[in-house]
């Protein structure tokens, strides 16, 4: 069993990423932001990508949408969506692919609304441009869409600044699912929001997902949130996947020391107060090897004394 064959349910994968490598090419040196990453997402599956800032998770999302700009370059690997090669698409194909096949909600997306157009005008735009509906029909659908995310359709006439952050974020999510894409990419969709609003939005995404049946690529650094929402997840470190399995398995039995550190970074809300350690300052993993199957469906990058470079003085200091 290879990694790309493991998916939730027996469905054909919607998205299949194989050995994706992305480099940022500079004049004097280049950096590998994503290094031979493979994963697949099945129909109706929620796949989580966890990791800290700079680990390459947003770069992957942008590669799938073909949004990478210089100096970033896809240096190797393949991305296929429903059997089509995303990396070989023409600009006209890409135009259809984006939004209709794959939609993306960006980090602090609520600030991506155009401040001088009403919410209604912006949603109507999607339908008239991408679906070719009449204006009247588009307006009717826009109202439906807002109802779907529980915003009063009267808000179609509101400007973005008249809505709260949570409402704007919900409007953006409504716009993302407007054309019923088969894959929705959520890049830290709730980081700028308060916890209460965050949970309501996540619950809404879950409802929408169940109703419309799309797949989700969910990117965040919040492990607790990810385990709650995802079916399967992968943990990234320095451009590589260090562990991938069913979310519940990762939660119950994290195997890679980095995954354990990420888990330990979120103290539980129940049970006794136990000391947690996290990742000491200065601990780095280098030359992370390819994943191997540690348990059925649970893939972990082998780690040993040579894989983790530990700044010993720092470790001693931080452990005290």
């Amino acid at each position: 069993m290879t990694i790309s064959q493991v998916s939730f349910g027996s469905h054909e994968p919607v998205l299949d990423v194989k050995d994706l490598t992305v480099k940022y090419i500079g004049d004097t040196r280049s950096t590998t932001a994503v290094d031979r990453v493979s994963f697949s997402i099945g129909t109706g599956e929620v796949f989580g990508l966890a990791g800290e800032s700079g680990c390459g998770k947003s770069t992957i999302a942008n590669s799938i949408m073909r949004l990478l700009k210089d100096p970033a370059k896809i240096a190797g690997g393949s991305i296929s969506f429903g059997g089509k090669d995303v990396l070989a698409m023409s600009p006209e194909e890409l135009r259809r692919f984006r939004w209709q096949d794959v939609a993306m909600v960006f980090q602090s997306a609520m600030n991506s609304l155009n401040p001088v157009l009403t919410i209604g005008e912006q949603i109507v735009d999607i339908f008239t441009t991408h679906a070719g509906y009449s204006r009247k029909e588009s307006l009717r659908r826009a109202a439906e869409l807002l109802e779907l995310v529980r915003i009063d359709p009267a808000r179609l006439k509101s400007y973005p600044h008249q809505l709260s952050g949570g409402m704007r974020q919900r409007a953006v999510i409504a716009m993302a699912v407007a054309l019923k894409p088969s894959l929705l990419i959520l890049d830290e969709p709730t980081t700028a929001l308060d916890v209460v609003v965050q949970q309501e939005i996540m619950a809404q995404i879950k409802d929408l997902q169940r109703e419309l049946g799309f797949s989700v690529l969910f990117i965040t650094h919040d492990m607790s949130l990810m385990v709650e929402l995802s079916h399967r997840m992968a943990v990234m470190y320095g451009g590589r996947i260090v562990e991938t399995a069913k979310a519940q398995d990762v939660y119950a039995n994290p195997r890679h020391p980095y995954t354990q550190a990420l888990m330990g970074a979120f103290p539980p809300l129940t049970g006794p107060r136990v000391p947690l350690t996290g990742l000491p300052d200065g601990v780095k993993f280098r030359n992370i090897p390819d994943l191997s199957e540690a348990a059925p469906g649970h893939f972990v990058a082998p780690f040993g004394a040579d894989a983790a470079v530990i700044d010993s003085a720092n470790l001693a200091g931080a452990a005290r």
């Binding site: 949970q199 919040d222 709650e228 539980p268």
Partner: peptide, 29 residues
């Protein structure tokens, strides 16, 4: 702290506590 978060009495505290993602009580929403 332990008692407050185990037995929140104010609706606002209950709202806050119930909103914290915690895989140990997933699906409690």
């Amino acid at each position: 702290s332990l008692d407050l978060l185990a037995n929140p009495a104010h609706p606002y505290t209950q709202l806050l506590v119930s909103a914290v993602p915690d895989p140990a009580r997933a699906g409690s929403y």
